[in-house]
Amino acid sequence: MPELHTIRCVGCEGGIPPLTHEEINKLLPELQDWKVSQDGKFISRHFSFKGFYKTMAFVNAVAWIANQENHHPDMEVGYNYCLIKYTTHAVDGLTQNDFICAAKIDKLEA
């Protein structure tokens, strides 16, 4: 199977089941420091930065990825941090798209 960061997201309008806990646990090791919510409906990661400008540069890079993949996270942004949460609202849970985008965001730090 190709690495997640090399795959493109597939449009999702619902009608598919969210990932099972087993499927989530298979994909999670491909990500860096992402956590799964207790209900298994979203993944999140907290990023820290040295100052506002670096935080905003990161936020803009995430926005570019989200638009390229047409899959958008919820973000909480402060002076020196960004909390990113991914879920697929159309299925009320996680899909492979969430993990693809998270893997692409991980590559911003590489």
Results as ranks from 00 to 15, higher is better:
A103M: 00
Y81M: 11
H71G: 02
R8F: 14
E76I: 11
K41I: 09
N60K: 12
Y53P: 02
G51A: 09
N70D: 14
K107P: 03
C12V: 00
M56Q: 03
Y53Q: 10
S37A: 15
P2I: 15
D74P: 02
M1E: 14
E69C: 10
M75L: 15
K104T: 03
P2S: 14
I105M: 05
N97T: 04
H21I: 15
T87L: 12
E3S: 11
I100R: 04
N70W: 06
P29G: 06
T6Y: 07
C101K: 02
K85Y: 09
K35D: 04
L83N: 05
C101A: 11
D92V: 15
K41S: 10
K107L: 10
T87K: 15
E109A: 09
N25F: 08
H89G: 01
H5A: 13
E30S: 04
L83E: 09
A90S: 02
K85W: 10
I43E: 01
E3L: 14
T20R: 08
P73F: 07
H21T: 10
T55P: 00
A102M: 04
N80V: 11
F49C: 03
P73D: 03
E109N: 13
G51M: 14
I105Y: 03
Q68T: 14
F99H: 02
D106R: 02
T6Q: 14
H71N: 04
V91E: 02
F42M: 14
M1V: 13
H89L: 14
M56E: 01
I65N: 01
E22T: 13
N60G: 11
A66I: 08
C12T: 01
E109S: 15
G11H: 05
T20Y: 10
D106E: 04
A66S: 06
F47M: 11
G93S: 08
D33M: 11
